[in-house]
Design a protein around this nucleic acid. Structure first.
Lengths: 209, 209, 209, 209
DNA sequence: CAGTAAGCGAGACGGTACGTCCAGTCTTGTT
DNA sequence: AACAAGACTGGACGTACCGTCTCGCTTACTG
């Protein structure tokens, strides 16, 4: 159990540990009030009670900072155990929709995705901090459904991984599109409809495939 | 068949008709080369051979301009008649994916959606110029499938409209998420998998519903 | 008594005669309200109820327009006959000071002089429209003083012309500097002091010269 | 003998001391090449090797900048000791005329005076930076002439101050009007004539007064 | 008394500068 | 060495005018 002491013994003043949290919180606060495009790093620094240099010492720029600030929001997602696969999916989709209803997530998430279309490093950072991290929900959900006998065990692990990706894109994509592009609420009724179609599709596919 | 002569006789020099097309083309060109965040209206004006003021006389800002420039890209979508519903869906999804593979669409679309999260007028413009306009594909596709007997005719028109919205969010959302967030290509294999799940879900739902 | 009918017989619609006066009046009005630097030709045109093109058809630009607008102000200067040279000078200096107290003259005059430092044609136009035209006052005043015997008749006409120029520069320069640079009023007390010094200088010079 | 250490210890990066001088020099350079009306702050900044923001951080606008740039020119004026009051006056008038013959002074000075007619703060800045500062020449000249016995000592200090103002307006006004409005050179001949009239006027007034 | 050529208003056009704002870096003295 | 403070370069912003142009309409002289 080695502690994460850095190899290079730090000389000079150590970095303030409170600063990181204060900056991320200030970023989310600014996202709520101003949205991504009007958010300025100078303002974030001021809100966090920190100098701009401190901020730049830790993040390369606006995009990286916002990714980190937004990523934390999605960590609160958890797969509820409601007894059936359908109920589990509905539960997690509603949680996801609730996060996307918060202004700091709405504006921030899409903006960094937009930037990510031209910046491989940023795209990778998004994938790592947000996408891949939340795929656990799909994997867990399937395992639980298989344990319950609602879904058959998969034979081919490659095929299984592909299915996880597909489901994740369908679920996340549909909720994002519903809430941000169509600009309609992903309410209980919509979630029920969506889950029904998804589940029938998955069960059909796993039987026929 | 009323001709479109304006009621109010325009006085003063009329607006150049070429300018609009040149500006939108220049915007797409700049989106390809620079992406949304590095695109400047001054640069677009220069590329279009037009003064900045001309541009501002017609569009309120970067967002509105990009919406219009990107919206035109989606007008080339057409529902192919490949004989079966599955083939039709695959066809249009592939077309959609092909458009999203183009850099002028990738960066522009997500950016305006991001801005739309804080600007109701912009959101409405996006809905009107892009979303609603392309829902025709879903409506046509269903009608054609019903004519072929692949789908049952719907009873409730309200329910039918809700289903159109749901399908559109699922299809558009999944493709966008796959290509822009997960950053994986929506290739033929993925489209086949996706279509299969979607179709099974829809058929199951229409039977059970 | 040839009328000023142009050699080239005008065909087509003749220029509106009211427009010129309206434009010059509007220019003075705008000078009062806005000053030279904030005066715009578009605004002048609007005030005059005239299109910008009409204005540009008659004047080359802001400077030429303002020269003409300001020049008219100085035409109201007249040499009073108050019985003595000193009284005559005091009278005309006070008139001159009164004109320079009006905002349309203050701002306009200095501005065109400033522009004239880099534009020979403009400088010539100023000299012709304002300076030379008002030198008549000095010439008249001297003639009257000579008739009264207050000043000796001059022998050398070249010398006489040089003296006119000198007096004009001293008088006009002192009043302008007093009112616009030192920004003190050229009131009766100051005018009396100034006239006394000037007159003593002139008499002394004409005796000794 | 208090040192000029500021009471409030400056925090943050101190302002570049070279920048001020570079900007003023660049302003004079631009005045020579372009004149006041074509001088742009962006161009001045470029010439000075400085960003536009640096310039705006220190001066409120074009007028304030030009006043400071021009004011420095007049600081080189010095009262020569040529033995007699007439010679002293001629010397300083010639110096003044030489400065006004330089294009950076011609265009800049009149322009700021023109602007000053509508801006009390600017007028005060001109008075403080240029007018009042150069009145020392009149005061010194008179003192020296009194020491030599060329002028009687004055009794009334109020009266004396008024005379200084009058002389300054006459001298500066005449030279300015001669060179900038009449657009004739204030050469040695003219200066001799002018000085003679002025001196006779002053002596006459001080005897009779 | 019809034809026609110039004048007119309106307002869009290509340009240029404005003064402001922010990004990201650098230079102080302090901790 | 990190930190707060704030000045620095550089570049885009959106606005305001300039002086030109292109319209359709009006007006007086001409043939």
């Amino acid at each position: 159990m080695q502690s994460r002491t850095p190899a290079t013994r730090a000389s000079g003043r150590p970095r303030s540990v409170e600063a990181d949290a204060a900056i991320l919180a200030a970023t989310r606060e600014a996202l709520v009030e101003l949205g991504w495009s009007k958010l300025t790093l100078g303002d974030v620094a001021t809100r966090a009670g920190v100098a701009k240099t401190t901020l730049y010492r830790r993040w390369a720029g606006k995009n990286e900072l916002v990714v980190d600030a937004v990523a934390e929001l999605f960590d609160e997602l958890a797969l509820p155990d409601r007894g059936t696969l359908a109920a589990d999916i509905e539960g997690v989709v509603l949680q996801f929709a609730a996060i996307l209803a918060r202004p700091e997530a709405r504006s921030g998430l899409m903006a960094v995705v937009a930037e990510g279309t031209r910046d491989e490093a940023l795209r990778e950072r998004i994938r790592e901090s947000i996408v891949t991290r939340q795929k656990r929900l799909v994997v867990e959900g399937r395992a639980r459904a298989q344990a319950r006998g609602e879904l058959p065990p998969e034979n081919d692990p490659v095929e299984a991984a592909r299915t996880v990706d597909l489901i994740f894109d369908v679920v996340a994509g549909a909720v994002v599109h519903r809430t941000l592009v169509s600009a309609e609420p992903a309410d209980e009724e919509w979630v029920r409809d969506f889950t029904r179609v998804l589940l029938l599709g998955l069960k059909g596919a796993s039987q026929a495939g």
